[in-house]
Simulated scan of single mutants.
Amino acid sequence: MSDELLRFVSGPTPYSSWWLWLAVSLSIILIAWYAAVFVFTMPGRRIAGLPVIGAARGELAKRRSIRAVRAIGTRHRAGELGAVPAAAAISRELRAFLQAATGTRAEYMQLDAIAAGELASAAPVLTDLTDAQFNADSVVDVGAAADSAEELIHSWS
């Protein structure tokens, strides 16, 4: 083999630069995804201080809770759900919303503690729901209580 053919021998071809930019872009997207998951799953009080994210999270919690309470009320009015299970489901959903909106562990609080604290405006609705759930002689209209819970969630700030 002659030496004049050696000029055609070269090393491996280098990678294209777009592979580097693709790797950097995917890394940034992955980091942003983990940050978003972390921020949106934080308890209510810590995230409420963030201006845009806190407001967006609060609105999403409101919409989800209103939709759930409305569905429970509709099922109760249609006769698919009795008064006791409907009252329990609405109470559970309302307490979950209050916990998501304020960070207060409303799911585990008694009515006296709710009435004495920052969640006092929710106490009358929760009292009606508790009465409908645990009092066999209750005269509380669960459909009206569902409407009250929906209005409370809608007006919560």
Rank of each mutant, 00 (worst) to 15 (best):
S155W: 00
M42F: 04
E150M: 08
D141I: 12
A87L: 11
A68H: 06
N135E: 13
E118S: 14
V52C: 04
S121C: 00
I66G: 01
L111M: 12
L119A: 14
P51H: 11
R75Q: 13
S138F: 10
G79R: 03
A88V: 08
D137R: 13
A35P: 00
P124H: 07
M1H: 07
E93Y: 05
V139Q: 14
A122G: 11
V69D: 09
F8N: 07
A32T: 00
G11H: 08
R92K: 12
F38V: 07
W18S: 08
P14N: 04
A83I: 02
A123F: 13
D147V: 01
A116K: 14
A96K: 09
R92A: 14
L30F: 13
A89E: 15
E4R: 12
A120S: 04
L50F: 12
T104Y: 13
L111Y: 12
M1P: 05
L6M: 13
S157R: 11
R67W: 04
P14K: 09
A123S: 15
Y34R: 08
G143M: 07
L119M: 14
A146T: 10
L5W: 10
G82L: 12
G73C: 09
L5F: 15
P124S: 01
E4H: 11
P43Q: 01
T102I: 10
I153M: 06
A86M: 08
L60C: 04
T127E: 07
W156K: 03
L81N: 00
F38H: 08
L129W: 06
G58S: 11
W156C: 05
